[in-house]
Design a protein around this nucleic acid. Structure first.
Lengths: 217, 217, 217, 217
DNA sequence: GATGAATGAGCATTCATTCAT
DNA sequence: AATGAATGAATGCTCATTCAT
């Protein structure tokens, strides 16, 4: 960590404070409905100040995504330190991801929104966008490391390429959690009406299913 | 099928024609950038006419999603008629989904956009939204049927609840395809830069992985 | 003149109506202070309607300039039809220009503003800007024609190139009128405080002075 | 000249330094686009300091105009000291003005901008505005003096009032130079496209023309 | 004196939706 | 039914100016 001057520290704090406010507003109004006015009001600063800390609205959104992905990486990274088999690490990562999404649903929404826009919107560029991508790559690396460990300790089949397997696990997990997550937050979601499986049950079975597929016989 | 009067038929045709135009515009400009003016112009009708056929802009978007999901269901439903084991049906469904996304990426984008908005946006309601949900439920049912068949013919473990397994497969497939799909369309996607697995390879391995997990020993 | 359909006529009328309103607002508030809100309010249309008739604010300003220069050209063109010597035509044109500026000071202000911005502002482009330039060129042509007539009939020295002389007369006239004009409208103008020559006297003497310079001996 | 204390001298220097910076910024970005931020940055002082030396943005602009007009006066004043006929002095003044505009186009732009705004904008007041007016009056006086000398030495007709003639010459010169100046800087200027007279040629002929008009026979 | 963070009024422009014809 | 002119609320962003330190 770099040592920051008092001024820089204050600036960083303020920035965090604005991100907090933006998260709150977006939690209430959804991402695109959130206006700069609302965010400024919530953060108890003027609209002009927002632009002192963030280049534009997209930057604020990116900052939220970046913060979320950084937090997620923190929990994932810790799992690699545990005394577990590679397979158990992977399972733990799945559960950890789920826990994160449940605790901070706003970040999950932010990620989805981000992924929908980044391909089409030119505003989504610059330092923060790169940081987000870097965080995503980092998350992937944690998964791949766990897979490599598993292949080493014999808990995971080594017939797959660990990177490719990582992509699959990462994508599949996001998909399952996305679906399960929406089941809870949506009223209109009819698909799952007559299904009363809990989110946890779904994830556990998913992890189990993948685990079996990967397991060394 | 209900028999439609000549007038009703004409109206339905016109509606399809507008949806065609909207798809085209959204393919070009992205979803939120597409304006009613552009759609009207592309459809060669007046802006007012758009509102004669669709309640609002969200309805047009829902109509696209509905059409897409209906088309997908058509391919899925056919798989149930084939002479295959349940497990093979599931694999085929995965490949069929992938093929659909590759052939009609616009629908995939529409689905994603739809899922991002439906939870926060009140305009996403009414008949068409219900139809979309109904189609999603139908897709789920095809999967569950295949799983039931597999459990029956012994190709799939019967230790999972077929409905829950269906949810998992459905979610996981969407996630993997979503990720792989974005890998292709995004420049900024750094996660996968050093990975040169093809979309097909990823999906095949994913299907294989799930298959092994589900397979009866 | 092209025959316009009823709709086109109505549109043209509306456009003129908006220009009228814009002139009025700009007369009151000055050019850059005039806001689209004020113009819309004055024109008794909504702000959106403004954009139905004009691409942007600069276009409205250009439309005023274009109208003004068109009107000026009309008076200049008529002078060429009179039974006068070339020299007398030139003098008449000077007086005509003065009369125009006195009757419609707003256009004179518009021209000045236009000339100040056109070089630096990229918004000043397109059809209307071209029309303005075309009008300016046309005005120049009237002057040059009068000079040529004067050289022919012997009332003007033929030692100057008519085009170059035209530029000089055009520029000098604008400058003199500009100065005299500002003398009247400005409070702060101290240069001329102790000078009580009338605008007309100044212009007449100016015309006389130039005339003597150009006159054939 | 008043003797200034060390502190006052320092303050005056600082002020000049800021004006230098403002000129540079306005040269780059045009007058209205120049922001206080840019000026502060260029001057290597804080934005707040700008307001320590100048009441507001208009004051900075006025200071530029004042400096420019002061410089112009300096060259004009020297001409009166030369051993020339009054008519030749006037011609020399015209050339001197042209030379000034060519060397320091920024001041010419500043003058134009100033004249466009001063009538409508209330911010253009106070000490500096008065100084500008005073400088303009001074320039006029130099011209009038030269005319008086010319009428005395017989090189200039005495049928005109020298003050009125001064106004005319001053205005006409500005107009011709303005036009010729814009011909060079503007791309869109279509009037003069087919005319390839040089700025110098135009001015020389203009001076010649006026000279002939004023000359005593 | 000097700073620069904070302000907030101000503005052009967009676009879904309506409704008179 | 079809049109498209008119609407006006909504919003991101700028920038001259102030003031606490």
């Amino acid at each position: 960590m770099v040592k920051l001057s008092r001024k820089e520290r204050k600036r960083a704090e303020r920035k965090e404070w604005i991100i907090d406010a933006a998260e709150e507003v977006m939690r209430r109004s959804g991402f695109e409905s959130a206006t700069m006015d609302e965010i400024a009001h919530e953060a108890e600063v003027s609209k002009g100040t927002l632009y002192l800390y963030f280049k534009n609205k997209a930057s604020i959104h990116l900052a939220i995504s970046e913060r979320g992905s950084r937090m997620l990486n923190q929990s994932l990274s810790k799992i690699l330190l545990l005394e577990l088999s590679g397979l158990e690490m992977i399972k733990k990562m799945g559960q950890s991801y789920l826990g994160f999404v449940q605790q901070y649903p706003i970040y999950f929404t932010a990620f989805s929104y981000y992924e929908n826009l980044i391909s089409s919107n030119e505003t989504y560029n610059g330092e923060l966008a790169i940081a987000c991508e870097e965080n995503a790559r980092e998350a992937m690396t944690y998964i791949v490391r766990a897979l490599q460990i598993g292949m080493q300790d014999g808990s995971i089949k080594d017939t797959y390429d660990p990177k490719e397997l990582g992509i699959i696990i990462w994508g599949a997990s996001k998909g399952v959690i996305h679906m399960a997550f929406h089941k809870e937050s949506r009223n209109h979601m009819r698909i799952l009406d007559d299904v009363d499986f809990s989110l946890d049950s779904i994830i556990n079975n998913f992890v189990e299913l993948l685990g079996t597929g990967m397991k060394n016989d």
